[in-house]
Design a protein around this nucleic acid. Sequence first.
RNA 1: GGAGAGAUGGCAGAGCGGCUGAUUGCACCACCUUGCUAAGGUGGCGUGGGGUUUUCGCCCCACCGGGGGUUCGAAUCCCCCUCUCUCCGCCA
Length: 424
Amino acid sequence: MLDIKVLRDDPERARQGALKKHFPARADAVDRALAVDAELRALIPVLDGMRAEQKQASKRIGALAPAERESFLAEQKAKKVELQKLEQKERELQDGLREALLQVPQVPDPEVPDGKDDAANLEVRRIGEPPVFDFEPLAHDDLAVSRGWLDVERAAQMAGSRNYLLFGDLALLQDAVLRFAVDHMVGKGFTAVDPPLLVRDEVMTGTGFFPGGEEQTYRVLEDGLNLIGTAEVPVTSIHAGEILDEATLPRRYVSRSMCFRREAGTYGKDTKGLYRVHQFQKVEQVVVDAADESKSRAHHEDIVRNSEEVLAALQLPYRVVAVCGGDLGVPQAFKYDIECWMPSRNAYGETHSASRFYDYQARRLKMRYRTTEGRKVIHCHTLNNTVLASPRILIPFVEVHQTADRRVRIPEALRPYLGGRELL
RNA sequence: GGAGAGAUGGCAGAGCGGCUGAUUGCACCACCUUGCUAAGGUGGCGUGGGGUUUUCGCCCCACCGGGGGUUCGAAUCCCCCUCUCUCCGCCA
């Protein structure tokens, strides 16, 4: 969330930010927050004064003579009732302020393109050429079914639509690309993490998914837990509530995990193949560092490059786009998507999403660090990016690398993960 | 799932209704002393909020796992939640 002080100083910035993200209701939350804040700030000095008075009074009680004591107690009791009433009010205001602040989105950076949906995303660069086939290429799912690698009907029988069964070489290929991605990141100094997949509401809130993302989340209400939609959630939360030593920053993590998404409100969208499914595996990179905008920007370029290196190794054509305001989430200040070329769509399709948050998540998570110089306590900055998500990545992989005889060519970098095979 | 014990500042560990935002040790910072690869002394050393000040700063409030409650007054008593440990049961 944003610092209430930032809102006080420049509420218009937060309002305009929410509007740029096409969140009109959340823009209103700015004014709600400020109204509650004003009321709260008027109340606090009054309460503090009353508490100070009470504190002094109660210290004198023991010394009083029994005669005076009784009337004094009666007086204190009366004041206490009044104080409790105001404290109740204070609690309500604090809850109201928090509720409103949680609604206020991170302000998008100036270079975020205007626009209401992904059609307005701006291409930053395009790497690699879409393949030209001298045969009729198949869509990934048709090819996979023909090879006995994929069965969505039986998956739907047991789990509903947007599910899949992977068999044989395709299941092994998935494991190979994921493991390759992890190894690549570990090689760059990232620490591998295997996190909890079921997390508490506060962790969802801390990373900015709640409030707002409840409908997209599989919730285990019986236990008050939520299935994560990305490892970003538990991994960014590792140091929640902590005050880290600046000397130990940045923290770089890479996590391979299952991800679960309800995909509510996407009925009829991307129903063919493995594009939009309820569960998938993802290798995610997360960076936590000191609150320095230029560092955050540098990290952002780094984590995008990391993923581009993986795509280069997998020999997949892709492009990088700057995500527009309307396509940005609540907590992001800026986001790059990487889109791989998907022949069956004759278009680029999103496969990666790289976000920088500045202190928006850290503030919610109460994740701070103590500066080496001056011993100040400051909220951290956080970032994350997909390294690889499967089965979606299998779409470009299988389609781009398919051969005329319905086989799949394996780029050299991946062969060690598939027993040296050059073709599947 | 059942029974019990516990959660205090970076760590260790006292306190168990008012004199405690908190004894003490370690760690850390500053200064002093001694001098030889380290010891001794003094002081400082949590977080958040509000107020005040032209600077250093000063004042007030809150916080002893989290949330309620009892009381004039709670780290200390009561209730709920979370977590940790021990024992029993169950199960991969």
